[in-house]
Computed example of a mutant assay.
Amino acid sequence: MKGICRGTILHRMFETTTPPKPKFFVIIGESETHVIGYFFINSNINNYVQRRKDFYDMQMPIKRNEYPFLKYDSFIGAHELNMIDKSLLAEELASGETSIKGCLNIEDMDRLLEAAKASDLFSPYEKDTYFR
Rank of each mutant, 00 (worst) to 15 (best):
M1T: 06
I4R: 01
C5N: 09
G7E: 00
L10C: 06
L10H: 02
H11Y: 15
R12N: 12
E15V: 07
T18F: 00
K21W: 01
K23I: 03
F24A: 00
F24D: 08
F25P: 02
V26D: 04
I28G: 01
S31A: 04
T33M: 00
H34Y: 04
I36C: 02
G37L: 06
Y38W: 00
I41F: 02
I41D: 00
S43N: 11
N47D: 07
Y48I: 03
Q50T: 04
R51V: 03
K53Q: 13
F55T: 06
D57N: 14
D57G: 05
D57R: 14
M60P: 02
I62K: 10
E66D: 15
Y67V: 06
F69H: 09
L70W: 08
K71G: 10
D73G: 10
S74G: 10
S74P: 10
F75Y: 15
I76C: 07
G77D: 15
G77A: 15
E80K: 15
L81F: 09
N82W: 08
K86N: 14
L89Q: 10
A90Y: 11
E91T: 13
E92C: 12
L93Y: 05
A94P: 06
S95M: 03
T98E: 05
I106S: 13
I106W: 09
D108Y: 07
A116W: 06
A116Q: 06
K117R: 15
K117I: 11
S123H: 07
S123C: 07
P124V: 09
K127L: 05
